[in-house]
Write a protein that binds this DNA or RNA. Structure first.
Lengths: 235, 235
DNA sequence: CGTATTATTGACTCCATTCAAAGATAGTGG
DNA sequence: CCACTATCTTTGAATGGAGTCAATAATACG
């Protein structure tokens, strides 16, 4: 269940925890980071209410970070791609405030909570790097909050462009990819009804901005999509 | 402009940075934390684009954390009360992604960015404590995102109750307080039009949930307000 | 005291939701 | 392999919550 990971050998070391650390520090991290078993869609990486497991990193596949509110509704706060970190929701009181759920077959690594404090002492750069990652998380959340005030069309265009960019950074195609989420899940994440998502995807297709069949998307006109984010008139 | 602060003597030491640190550690922190000059309403604690100053703590008064989007619109992401920390938006690339602006006369302390890394080495508990604070920040952002999908009435009721609770934790009255924000700012923060805020405040008053005159609010029926957050029917 | 900002109130509009029903897809077991 | 079922998606029509526009009133400020 827990295999050693050689962080230096993982292709994600410029994105993931090792980002910004030297070879010696990476070596130290590799000693405590654990690769956990592979999960299938809908399986939990951790559950709301669980004791803080530590900081997790997606190795392959994707996951969603979900908060369940008092009405029993689920809210998809973010979508995590390979190299991205999660678990920060458990830092404040050592209990995870969100659940993390695999969107598709998914592998992840764990920097266990217990060892984080020791690591701070042995790896001077680690605390600073983890802070940078929490900063990323905070800024992404802010961006999403700003976006959620914009019209539906803009939200969906941003979602597609943002996914595309992040996939490209990870060596995947920027133009063609497979959505690991249902229309329901996309709508939930963007604060829209699933019908609205469906209608807009069709509209984008009719405008030749994208081609979409089920979960397979191709971005045909990235500039056109970006233009939707700047609905202004100045030349 | 920069006076020494004795954190142990500040009444906020159970909320602010010193939370969870021992006397010796607090003493160490006090050596680098700086108290900055007092600001008036609309003055900046820091600006979007500034180099990371460090982690700031509100000592007195209140501030808003603001992000300016590409349309030139301002988005109030959070309201900071005494003892609360800000500046995390600058951790990811050493540049502040938000601006922090005083909502009223406001004093704050600064844990300078330069010294944070040194402090990690000298104060073992500090890294862990700052992580807890970033965790708080992340969870508050998540809560706000979930809230922003709810109807206007619920958002405003939550806003008032949340302010009330946080003020009480800081030794202020939970029932009566002065809003440091305009209707415009409240609406912006909650994703509502200022007219909607005005109408709902009046409605709450007509329902005897609150009494409001200009910026002075009194929560008359806290349970009644809380009931608005659980718009369900089960007894 | 006069001016600028902020707040209230009403009428109208619209974007996105909800409700509803049909169609497509994928997964399962006989 | 195909039928069967559950899940997901598409599409249409009607509704409504909150926004926008506009005009007045109140408050704060110099």
């Amino acid at each position: 269940m827990t295999n050693k990971v050689i962080c230096g050998n993982c292709s994600l070391d410029n994105i993931c925890i090792p980002r910004g650390l030297n070879a010696h520090e990476i070596d130290n991290i590799s000693k405590v980071v654990k690769a956990r078993k592979i999960l299938q869609r809908a399986e939990f990486l951790y559950r709301q209410g669980d004791a803080l497991k530590g900081i997790l990193a997606i190795k392959a596949g994707s996951a969603k970070l979900v908060s369940n509110d008092s009405h029993g509704n689920e809210h998809i706060l973010s979508v995590l791609l390979p190299g991205e970190l999660l678990g920060f929701d458990g830092l404040s009181n050592n209990t995870h405030q969100c659940s993390a759920i695999a969107l598709e077959t998914c592998a992840f690594c764990l920097l266990p909570a217990k060892s984080i404090d020791d690591m701070f002492l042995r790896i001077p750069g680690l605390a600073r790097e983890l802070f940078r990652h929490t900063g990323d998380t905070v800024n992404n959340d802010h961006q999403q909050r700003v976006l959620n005030k914009r019209p539906a069309e803009e939200r969906l265009a941003f979602f597609l462009l943002n996914l595309s960019e992040r996939l490209e950074q990870r060596g995947f195609s920027a133009a063609s990819f497979r959505l690991s989420m249902t229309r329901q899940e996309i709508g939930n994440h963007l604060g829209l009804a699933l019908e609205t998502v469906s209608r807009l995807l069709k509209k984008f297709q009719q405008q030749n901005l994208i081609a979409i069949q089920n979960k397979s998307v191709t971005l045909l006109d990235i500039d056109g999509l970006k233009a939707l984010l700047q609905p202004c008139c100045d030349p």
